[in-house]
Each structure stands twice: as C-alpha cells, then as structure tokens.
Simulated assay, not measured.
Amino acid sequence: MIIQNSSNVVKLGLSVALALAATACSGQQPSGDTITLVQGVKGNPFYVAMECGAKEQAAKLGVDLEVTAPDQFDASQQTPLVNAVAAKNPAAVLIAPTDAVAMRAPINNLISRGAKVIEVDTALDDTTISTSHITTDNFAAGEAAADKFNEILGGKGKILALSSAPGISTNDSRVEGLQEGLKAYPGLEFAGVQYTKEDATTAASIVSSSLSADPGINGIFSVNSPSSQGAATALRNNNAAERVKLIGFDAGPQQIEQLKNGAVVALVAQSPYQIGADGVQVAVDAIAGKDVPSDTTTPVMVLDTANVDTPEAQRFIYKTEC
C-alpha cells in the first residue's frame, strides 16, 4: 500500500520537467552555485538514502553539493554546523531541522546571507521562514498505521504510540495521523503517546511499565527506529510478542531484519531518496528565481512479509551507502 499526495507530486514533477527543459534549451548550467545538505544525524540510513538522491540529482543538474551532519539528532550539535555553512555563503541549503523552535535562529542566519533554505523531512514551527518544505506525508503515514492495526487486530484493541520528544514535526504528525485514523474503527482505542528520547532502553522501560499498567494494550506504533528496538525487547522479555503487535517506522537494514524475524509485524516506510532528489531540484529552481512549491509531500508504503521483497518495495528500503 502506497500513500501519497498526488497533486503535490504532479506539481513537483512538472516543475522538474520544466526546469530540465529550460536548462537543455538555454545551455546554461547553475554550476557556479553550491548547495549544502545539512542532515538530521550522521550515518542514519534514512539520511544516507536522502543524500544518495540529492547527490544523483545534483550530478544530473551540474551543481556542487556538500553534505554535513551532527553526530546526534540534537539542535545544540546542528546549530554550529549550520552557522559554519552560513559563513560559506551557499546559494541554497537543504536542512532537516532537529528542533522546530531552536533551529529558527540558525536558519534565519542562512537566509540573511542570501541562501535559499529548503526544509527536508523535518520543519520549523514557523512555516513562513523557509523557501520550501519537502517531507513525507507523515499524517497519512499515521493513518496507514491505523488501517494496518485494524487489519491485524481484527478491529479490537488499544494502541500505544512511542515518539521521540514533543516538538519534532514529523513525529508529531505521525502520532496525530494515527489518532485520526483510529477514529474510523470503533473497536480500536488510542492509549496515548509516550516519549522515549530515541533511546531503546528508555523505550523498553516505557513499554514494560505501560503493559503492566494497562493489560488491554495490544498494539504499539513506534515512530522511530530506537523506540522500535526497545519495544521489541520489552515485548520479548514480557512474553508479550504474540499478543501485542508492533508496527515500526522506517525501512533501514535493521528494520527490515526486524520485519523478517517477526519482531515487528509491519513497517511504515518513507521515500528519503526522492526527498533528497526533489530537494535539490527545488533548490536549483529557487536559485534561478523560479516559482517553487511551498510544500511537497512524498509517498509512504506499508511493508510486511508479504510485500517486502517485491520490486515495488525496493524503492522504499533505505541505503547504508550510495
């Protein structure tokens, strides 16, 4: 099952086609412009896949692309990197803000130096600051998880959500989508959201205590990889893996292994490669003074053991290297 906002994808596809046609006709290449991708965290397969898409599109368009990332998904680590990038006066910056509020000042610093800022994946709480925003349709992803829970639980149960921390736009939207999606199924109840700080040990402790406090919980939706790892450990330690169904998020090598060994029953997979490629194209268009979409969403696919090895699923499985 693939979920996407088709109108936005069509608009972006048209933008890409027009931009490439214009470049071919004029013979002009924006090769003198540097674009920098500031990832959310170094080494994560999601961001590696995004980098791969960005690099391929940059090579096609003849633009220079630089990539940098903090060691942790933390605004205090990302801020000095962004300020260092700003000092180089890049033409455009693709950035996954690590905090919806704390990253405002560094991003405003980029803009004050003339950079076009394209938010990729995550976003600031103020949508008027950046030139454009490209992300997974995270709300639809949460709704898709609700649909899958209804299927695997036979329409009855209580679903606990595990998120990182309040204020991360993508994670918040996934939980909100789950809540809204569950409303379509009278037999399914939302059991609240708990915050794990993307720490597997914390997630395991939360799941263990939640199951003890509320034995009616029979579904867990984890919106990030460390929480999925911790939840799977807790279910195993509490002999609850058969009774409580875990749906994870993302599709890196570790998540695919969890799916295949039964630790999770399904994964909601994004398309970070497309986010990176689309981000570079929007940046090039913005540098050229063209109108660009303020918001673009990319599709998700719900992976399970029945479809994970299909050709369709392969473009949603993340990379560890380009």
Rank of each mutant, 00 (worst) to 15 (best):
A75P: 05
N44E: 13
S169N: 12
D33Q: 08
V117A: 01
G27N: 02
G114D: 04
K158N: 14
K55C: 04
Q72T: 15
V193G: 09
P45S: 12
A313Q: 04
G62R: 05
K11W: 03
G13C: 12
A204E: 05
T310Q: 15
E312T: 04
N109M: 06
Y47A: 04
A17T: 11
E51N: 09
L246G: 03
I217P: 02
L110F: 00
P70N: 13
T34Y: 01
S112Y: 08
Q254D: 15
D64C: 07
T233W: 05
A54F: 07
T122G: 06
T310Y: 07
D214S: 14
L61D: 00
E119L: 10
S227N: 15
S228W: 14
S163D: 14
I129W: 02
L65W: 10
A251D: 05
A141D: 05
G279R: 07
V292P: 02
L81N: 03
L162K: 12
A263V: 07
I35C: 00
I129H: 01
I3L: 14
F316I: 13
T296M: 12
P45F: 02
L61Y: 10
D304Q: 05
T297I: 08
D126E: 04
V207Q: 05
Q4W: 10
D199T: 10
V282A: 00
P311S: 11
I35H: 01
K319G: 04
V63G: 00
Q77T: 05
T202S: 13
N307P: 10
A277L: 06
Q179T: 15
V292G: 00
D137C: 06
F190P: 00
V93W: 06
V193I: 13
A306L: 00
R236M: 11
P45G: 06
G219E: 12
S6Q: 08
M50S: 07
A277S: 07
A58D: 01
R113D: 01
D304A: 03
N238K: 06
A49D: 14
N138Q: 09
A288T: 00
D214T: 12
L259Y: 07
F149Q: 05
P299M: 05
D121E: 10
G157P: 09
P70K: 12
A213K: 13
D250M: 02
V48H: 08
Q194T: 08
P80W: 09
L303R: 07
Q4Y: 07
